[in-house]
């Protein structure tokens, strides 16, 4: 009975404060794989793939550059990550996990890192869009070379949404909250609900509401969608927004339950950053 492998025996003598990188990496592998196989994630992926329908007006290109094509996948990621983060509560394994050497924050870190597993999927979508050709050539035959920032924003939006899903599991541990959040995000896209240019538009993580548009040349004045492209000057702000939102959601999700002051500090920082971003954006 006492024939234990060296790796197991070593674990018993670890220094207490050793950084848990390897555990978190191992958890991230499991969480990432489960996320990619989650039915809601797969549904989001299928819906995102609908944007590949070539309508002959450059819509696919626009949808991928402004991130809209990634929205279903991001929403699927939010719900799937939210449900994944609620797993221990739903399955009543919290008591067991509380007796483990690794604290809850390690599991949350694994879930957050597991979101990186969506990157190959997002990359594959992008590559497919490029192969589809409408990614780089609009309806008038003009080549558009997306900036690296534009290429990054879709995958980053997916990760941001996933981090929000994990945070929601922490602050409102109910399986319907993720779905409600998705509905709220979609509702926020309804015309007139959040006017373009208002601070509310910045909170909606779709580029089209916050970007300054510049007409591509040549364009057909008769079609609005084919005549606009995302200005690269705004993309840096938008990526900063996503990145900051992701970090804040991750930090808030990892704060132990017994430290409400830490949670309040992160929330206050989030508000301050949102305000500063708004001011900086003019």
């Amino acid at each position: 009975m006492s024939s234990v492998s060296p790796a197991v025996a070593i674990a018993a003598h670890r220094p207490a404060r050793e950084r848990p990188r390897r555990e978190v990496a191992a958890l991230a592998r499991i969480e990432g794989r489960r996320l990619l196989l989650h039915p809601v994630f797969l549904l989001g992926l299928a819906l995102s793939m609908l944007f590949f329908r070539d309508e002959g007006n450059g819509a696919t290109w626009e949808a991928f550059v402004d991130g809209f094509a990634y929205l279903p996948l991001a929403c699927g990621t939010l719900v799937a990550a939210n449900l994944g983060a609620l797993r221990s509560r739903r399955d009543r394994t919290d008591e067991l996990y509380e007796s483990m050497p690794r604290p809850r924050s390690s599991r949350v870190a694994g879930q957050l890192l597991g979101l990186l597993w969506t990157l190959p999927i997002a990359g594959a979508l992008m590559a497919a869009a490029r192969i589809d050709n409408s990614f780089v050539v609009d309806n008038l035959g003009v080549l558009h070379a997306p900036s690296p920032g534009q290429l990054v924003q879709g995958p980053l939006m997916i990760i941001t949404f996933g981090a929000i899903g994990i945070l929601l599991a922490r602050i409102a541990p109910s399986p319907i909250v993720g779905a409600v959040a998705v509905v709220a995000l979609i509702a926020a896209r309804l015309p007139g609900l959040i006017p373009a240019g208002s601070i509310g538009a910045w909170l909606v993580p779709i580029a089209t509401d916050v970007f300054q548009y510049a007409p591509s040349t040549p364009c057909d004045p008769g079609t609005s969608s084919g005549c606009h492209r995302v200005a690269t000057s705004a993309i840096a702000w938008h990526l900063s927004y996503f990145f900051g939102l992701t970090l804040l959601a991750a930090a808030a999700a990892m704060i132990p339950r017994r430290r409400p002051l830490g949670f309040a500090a992160v929330a206050a920082l989030a508000v301050a950053l949102a305000a500063a971003t708004r001011l900086a954006a003019g």
Partner: peptide, 8 residues
């Protein structure tokens, strides 16, 4: 569970 028990 083994991962949470630091078996890496």
């Amino acid at each position: 569970v083994a991962i949470l028990k630091e078996m890496t």
